[in-house]
Design a protein around this nucleic acid. Structure first.
Lengths: 317, 317
DNA sequence: CATGATGCATAGCTTACTGCTATGGAAATC
DNA sequence: GATTTCCATAGCAGTAAGCTATGCATCATG
């Protein structure tokens, strides 16, 4: 018997559905299924009547539920009390991130962080990497996610750790695809209608330089959009866009097709860089507070989960 | 955070000592040490002040203790309530076992079983395998551990599963050793003074037949003893005795030296059998009650642990 | 003052557990 | 009767948690 199993049981009892409960727990259905059957075997009783349509608890299950609920509540109390004693009851974290990361990694992290440390004030600064580094140096930020492959951290008062490497991919619509199966070559992509980002994006510079390296100029049909608008345009089939892999996480209506610079590996031409490295920067001198340390830990952990789930994202640590 | 870690913490808080607490939990000291440091890292606070001599809890530790204790109590309640609903609140198990196993496997199993299901009445029948099989057939036992390598289960109303295979070893005193290092050959052992068991033991027949196979007759100096007496005689140096490996579990003052029948492997002579197989028998017709099933599970589990810890004992499943 | 004993931490390894994907089978729905 | 929905099972991979061996600090002792 362990807390995860009890949490699984309590969730099933609440939603009356294995599959839904698994979703609520961010777990696959078979994992939850086995969690429960392991628990049942361990306790020597069945807990849930699996009748199709509506699950019900057995007598043992009904007896277990209040105890399980209380234990989970106690576990939560422990977390809260310990966090208070560790100085995480109140405080502030100021996190900077480029727009491309705000829609995926940062959104997920903030959701969890808010739930875990509800007393901590959160401030987000969405800007380009150069701007973020300036804000960090000026003390307006505690932590900043930056594109280190574009903007090396040269400022001596700052330091950073690399968090993940993500491929650049071509976002294409599921309903109105512009591309076929398999990886796309940059040279073939140039002719396909493209949606380009606003020049303030690091990503735009990276994309342009990739094309320039191969002596190509893309067929841009819409220019200057922000992330959400661009992805929306792609979705309705106006064209495709080159985006980092994390920007497509959780967008089931878009497909991220792998990007290849050239089919011929024996060419002597310089190959454009089709991936980017994300780092987490902070000041070297000022020791980060407990709230910032917790944020950093959570960012690294969540990045690890992303990398595990998506082949186009990998860890760098 | 998990229940094992909380149990570790609570035990340390109780006994004020890592090493002692580890013993109380049947755990190695490093395992407990890491359990606590993992918990501390997870909760983001130190819980224990490691000052030599007397450990004290930090403020966070003092805050954690009552919650941890309550969760552990709840976990225990769950076990008890589920056991009651599964029909293990009251009942009876009648277990038979040969004397050689009662001192080790059975003792350990009964200790755990009694703690887990205090309402179940336990009856132990200590006898030879033949007698046990009769009692099982006659309905005077629910389960019996028997030496299947000596007494095959031929009775059609019975069935059995093999539990473990154990080597026969030579018990020798630590303080007054009769033997040198390394494995002993049966032929060399014959001259060393021996303590022999009472003829009612299956073991005695097995030992005698092993000697007879090689045309040897041992130098028996004391005859007819029961298990505890024989081991005691060995311990004070009166002689050595051939015993199954399980009989020496937990007896740190005795050493079990491996037994070999012949150094020459090319001999054509039949080799005596220097191991024995232990099986768990029960009636085929009568379905065992919940109490007996729980006993069976626990026996198999404990046998697995024994096999893991002792190279001369191995599983058979 | 050195020397050994004691007690917790660390390192390296192996096993077990828990997550996943792919797939099976039964019941409900069209 | 085909399809869909929903839970169970199988097989695999990565993490976690156990162990032994060893390190390091502190305290007692010759």
């Amino acid at each position: 018997m362990n807390l995860e199993q009890l949490r699984g049981f309590a969730t099933i009892a609440r939603v009356g559905h294995f599959t839904r409960a698994a979703e609520a727990l961010h777990l696959s259905q078979p994992s939850l299924s086995r969690q429960i059957s392991t628990l049942e075997h361990d306790l020597g009783t069945t807990l849930v009547n699996r009748t199709r349509g509506n699950l019900t608890l057995t007598a043992a299950g009904r007896a277990l539920l209040p105890l399980a609920t209380r234990m989970l509540a106690d576990a939560e109390s422990i977390r809260v009390e310990m966090a208070e004693l560790a100085g995480l009851r109140r405080g502030r974290v100021r996190l900077g991130a480029p727009p491309t990361l705000c829609v995926s990694l940062v959104a997920e992290v903030l959701e969890t962080y808010r739930a875990t440390y509800p007393g901590i004030e959160l401030q987000i600064s969405e800007a380009g990497s150069r701007m973020l580094l300036e804000q960090l140096t000026g003390g307006q930020l505690d932590l900043a996610l930056i594109v280190t492959s574009e903007h090396a951290v040269t400022e001596p008062s700052l330091t950073h750790t690399e968090v993940l490497v993500e491929q650049l991919v071509v976002a294409d619509s599921m309903q109105h695809p512009r591309l076929g199966q398999g990886p796309v070559e940059l040279r073939d992509l140039a002719m396909v209608p493209q949606i380009a980002f606003s020049p303030s994006y690091d990503l735009r510079a990276a994309t342009q330089s990739a094309y320039r390296t191969l002596g190509l100029s893309p067929n841009v049909v819409i220019d200057g959009g922000e992330m959400d608008a661009v992805l929306r345009f792609v979705q309705v089939g106006l064209g495709v866009a080159i985006v980092p892999a994390t920007a497509l996480v959780g967008r089931s209506q878009l497909h991220g097709r792998a990007l290849r610079s050239s089919a011929r590996k024996d060419t002597d031409l310089a190959q454009p860089n089709l991936e980017r490295t994300i780092g987490l920067a902070h000041r070297r001198d000022t020791p980060p507070g407990a709230a910032a340390i917790a944020m950093r830990e959570l960012l690294l952990q969540t990045a690890g989960q992303l990398a595990q789930r998506h082949p186009q994202i990998s860890l760098r640590s």
